[in-house]
Simulated scan of single mutants.
Amino acid sequence: MGAAYLVIYVADYEQAALLPLPGAGVPGRQALSMEGTLGGLAYRRVDTVRAARAEPLAPLWIPVLDGVERLGVAEVGFTAPPSEELLADISALLALTAELIVVNGAYSDFFARVRRRKLLSLAAEIQWDLLPPLAYGADRIVITGGLEPAYDIGGDTFDYAVNGDVADLMVLDAVGHGLPAAVLASVAVGAYRHARRNLLDLPDMCHEINEALAQQFGNSQFATGVLARLDLETGRLRWINAGHPPPLILRGSSLVRPPACSPARPLGLQETKAVCCDLRLEPGDRLLLYTDGITEARSPDGQYFGEARLIDFVTTAATHGDPAPETVRRLMRRVLAHQADRLQDDASLVMLEWRAGTEAQLLA
C-alpha cells in the first residue's frame, strides 16, 4: 500500500494513554497521552489526523475501531501523500486488524498485558472480563459505558444486550469493596444473563438475581442496581430500581424526571417480586444509569460531584457534538479529577441514546 511503516497503539484500561504494540520490524515508540498528542486527537475525534509537517514520512493517525468501540489508533508513515482511495484501503485493513485484536484477545493474554500501565487488582481483572464492549452502535441506538478506578474497580459493573427491537441494560453496585464485591457482582451478572437469555420479563429477571444472591450470600450481602428494557421501535422504557439512584433522562439540555415510582429493595434482600416503572422516550433522548460513586465523588475541599455537574457535563458535550463514547470517557476522567484522582468508591455509568440522529456518524 506504499506505507513506509505502521504502528498500532491500543488504549489502556483508563482510556488515558495509547500504548504501542511491539512486533518484528515495528519502529520503537513510547506511550502517548490521550491529551495533547495527534494520536490522542485521532482517538478522541474518531477521525484521521494528519501531521502538520510536510517532510517525507510525516505520519497519519487513523482510529482502529471494532464496530464503534475504539480499540486504539494506527500511526502510518507514507513516502508520498496517499490518495483517498488508498486511505479507504488502509481503513479497511485497520478494521480487519481490529477484528484480529478482538478475536486473538479472547485466547491470548498479549493485548491485555499491553493495555495495562500498572497492575490490575484481582477484583478489577474479574470485572473487566465480565464487561461487554464499552461502546455499541446501531441505526437506532448507541450504548456506552465507563468504569473507574479502572485498575482497582471492585463492586461496580454493567451489562447490556440488544436483541432485535429490544435493548436490555443493567447497572449494578455490589456492597463492599475489592474481591468480595467482585464475586458478588459476578454472580449477579451471571444470573442476569441467564434470566435474560431465558427470555424472562424484567420482574422475573430481577427475581432470579435476587434469589441467586440470597442463596449464595445470605442477607449480609446485597447489590443495588437498575434493570431497564427499551423497545427500539416505540421508545417504551421499562425499568426496575432496586435501591439505586434513579435513572436520568436528558431531552436536549433539559432533565426529564421519570414519573413517581417506588423503588424495590436491593437485590438479595427482596421478599416480593419487584414492580416495573414505565415511560416513553422521545427521539434524541439520552438515558443515564449510574452508581453513586459518580455523584458522591468528593473533592479535597468536600464538594460532591453531584447530579447537577453530571447533567451539565453530558448536555454540554451533546451541544458541542461530542459522540457518546468520548462523552463518557471524558466524564469518567472529570469525576476522577474532581476527587484528585483518588476515588473513595467505585464509579460506573451507562449512557443510552435512542434515535439521536448521530448514529450514522459512529457507524461511518
Score class of each variant (00 low, 15 high):
Leu232Asp: 01
Glu307Ala: 08
Ile240Phe: 02
Gly302Ile: 13
Gly321Asp: 09
Ile311Met: 09
Ala317Cys: 13
Ala274Lys: 10
Leu343Gln: 14
Leu279Trp: 09
Arg286Trp: 02
Glu307Pro: 07
Leu250Ala: 06
Gly284Cys: 07
Asp322Phe: 07
Gly321Tyr: 10
Asp231Val: 04
Val335Arg: 09
Asp322Cys: 01
Asp231Ser: 14
Val328Tyr: 05
Arg280Asn: 12
His338Cys: 05
Leu248Pro: 06
Pro247Thr: 10
Gly252Ala: 07
Leu287Ala: 09
Ser299Arg: 12
Gln303Gly: 08
Asp278Pro: 08
Ala264Ile: 05
Ser254Ile: 00
Ala242Leu: 05
Pro247Lys: 07
Asp231Tyr: 03
Arg257Asn: 13
Gln339Gly: 15
Leu267Val: 00
Ile240Asn: 04
Arg238Lys: 14
Ile311Thr: 14
Ile311Gly: 00
Leu336Lys: 14
Thr315Gly: 11
Pro245Arg: 05
Pro300Thr: 11
Arg286Asp: 07
Ala242Asp: 05
Pro263Ser: 01
Gly235Val: 04
Ser254Cys: 08
Arg333Pro: 02
Asp301Phe: 10
Val275Ser: 13
Cys277Ile: 10
Pro247Gln: 12
Gly293Glu: 11
Asp292Asn: 15
Glu296Asn: 14
Asp301Lys: 12
Ile240Ala: 03
Arg298Glu: 15
His244Asp: 07
Val256Asn: 02
Cys276Pro: 15
Gly284His: 03
Pro259Tyr: 08
Val275Ile: 15
Glu326Ile: 12
Thr291Val: 06
Asn241Met: 04
Leu232Pro: 00
Ile240Pro: 03
Leu281Arg: 07
Val328Asp: 09
Ile249Ala: 06
Leu281Trp: 00
Arg257Glu: 15
Gly235His: 00
Leu343Arg: 09
Leu248Ser: 04
Tyr290Ile: 09
Pro266Gly: 00
Ala242Met: 09
Glu307Gln: 15
Pro245Asn: 07
Pro245Ile: 01
Glu271Trp: 03
Asp301Trp: 06
Leu237Asp: 04
Gln303Ser: 13
Leu267Phe: 06
Leu267Asp: 03
Leu248His: 08
Pro246Asn: 11
Ala260Gly: 14
Cys276Thr: 14
Arg280Ser: 14
Ala242Gly: 11
Leu288Glu: 04
Asp301Glu: 15
Ala242Pro: 07
Ala318Tyr: 05
Gly243Val: 05
Ala308Thr: 13
Ile294Cys: 06
Leu248Phe: 05
Asn241Leu: 04
Val275Lys: 12
Ser253Ala: 13
Arg309His: 06
Arg238Tyr: 00
Glu271Leu: 14
Asp292Thr: 15
Phe305Met: 11
Asp231Met: 04
Ser254Gln: 15
Arg251Pro: 03
His338Phe: 10
His244Lys: 08
Tyr304Phe: 15
Cys276His: 00
Ala297His: 10
Thr327Glu: 11
Thr291Arg: 02
Gln339Lys: 11
Thr272Cys: 00
Ser253Lys: 05
Tyr290Pro: 02
Phe313Asp: 06
Asn241Val: 05
Ser253Glu: 12
Arg298Asn: 02
Ile240Met: 00
Val314Phe: 01
Ala324Tyr: 06
Gly293Pro: 13
Ala242Ser: 14
